[in-house]
């Protein structure tokens, strides 16, 4: 993919913060690189403190990078024309609680140069999109967390942006709300928009993302299309057996099943299934089930984070 085609192009991004009184430096992001293509739904993953929000703040002009290159829609995040085509929902946003939902969206729409009638129409459309028309005149201080999150998404989309950056958009939403947000994101893709979003809810990412980048401790640990990251070659077999044997003495990584005395669960590669079953049976175990366990995104993140941690140690 060429740099020109990339909607977001981050190359060797690093961000260092100074602690109060400048006693020490904290490296929030180190040498992070990734590209987001036009029309993609791009997932940004990582545990807490991985550097996701810091990277997003650089992309949205809230902070400047310490080093590296960042290009958004072919320009700098500080360019007005870039921000005109970018919508952003921060993580756990705080709102102007003295405003009603309609007043708030109306003010946000003014930044995009929308005039009178067009602005009112756009505000109505956004309220409708996020299902908040019924609460349009209510003050934001009276909104629940989920309602505020919907208004946050509405303000991110008010300028009909080409690129939408969402930091934890599912946070605070119930399952129905999450599905609605997933539907909104999917509809944005259908309209040819690019969506870049971070989330802790991995199932949401697995369901809708084309590509992901995984951060841990401020570094890239994995990146690419989901299919290649969760490659079929990584499929594992899971054997459940019952017996009196000693779990410690078994091959591979066997664990006792909580709440089921005498039961154990063991994972191995598909090639090792036959030999493992034989070993288990020789030691007096009864095989209860053999299933294929496809590697989940969660497994991937945990394994990558584990690899990084062991490398650092």
């Amino acid at each position: 993919m060429s740099s020109a085609a990339a909607v977001i192009d981050v190359q060797h991004l690093s961000k260092t913060f100074l602690t109060p009184l400048a006693l020490r430096k904290v490296r929030a992001v180190q040498d992070v690189s990734f590209r987001v293509s036009r029309g993609q739904i791009f997932g940004f993953l990582g545990p807490n403190g991985a550097g996701k929000t810091t990277t997003i703040k650089v992309l949205t002009n809230l902070i400047r990078p310490s080093s590296g290159k960042v290009s958004v829609l072919g320009g700098s995040p500080s360019d007005l024309h870039v921000r005109l085509k970018t919508g952003f929902l921060p993580e756990m946003p705080n709102f102007y609680d003295y405003l009603s939902a309609r007043e708030f969206l109306d003010i946000m729409a003014r930044f995009y140069g929308l005039g009178g009638r067009t602005r009112r129409k756009r505000v109505d459309e956004m309220l409708e999109l996020v299902g908040m028309t019924y609460a349009a005149k209510r003050k934001l201080r009276k909104f629940s967390k989920g309602m505020l999150q919907r208004i946050g998404i509405a303000q991110a989309l008010i300028g009909d942006p080409e690129l939408v950056i969402l930091d934890e958009p599912m946070s605070g939403l119930d399952p129905i709300g999450r599905k609605e947000v997933r539907d909104i994101i999917a509809s944005l893709k259908q309209k040819g928009r690019t969506v870049f979003f971070s989330s802790h809810i991995l199932s949401d990412i697995e369901m809708i993302c084309d590509e992901v980048v995984v951060l841990n401790r401020g570094r890239n640990v994995a990146a690419g299309p989901l299919d290649s990251l969760l490659h079929p070659g990584r499929v594992m077999s899971e054997i459940v057996a019952q017996g009196p044997g000693d779990v410690e003495a078994l091959p591979g990584k066997a664990v006792s099943m909580e709440g089921k005395p005498g039961f154990l669960r063991l994972q191995c590669s598909p090639d090792e299934v036959d030999s493992t079953i034989q070993t288990l049976m020789q030691r007096g175990f009864h095989i209860k089930s053999v299933t294929e366990a496809r590697m989940s995104l969660e497994d991937l993140i945990v394994s990558k984070a584990f690899q990084e941690d062991s490398r650092d140690d």
Partner: peptide, 9 residues
């Protein structure tokens, strides 16, 4: 965080 990323100097 809602205003600074908007198209406004």
């Amino acid at each position: 965080y809602l205003v600074v990323p908007k198209p406004v100097r």
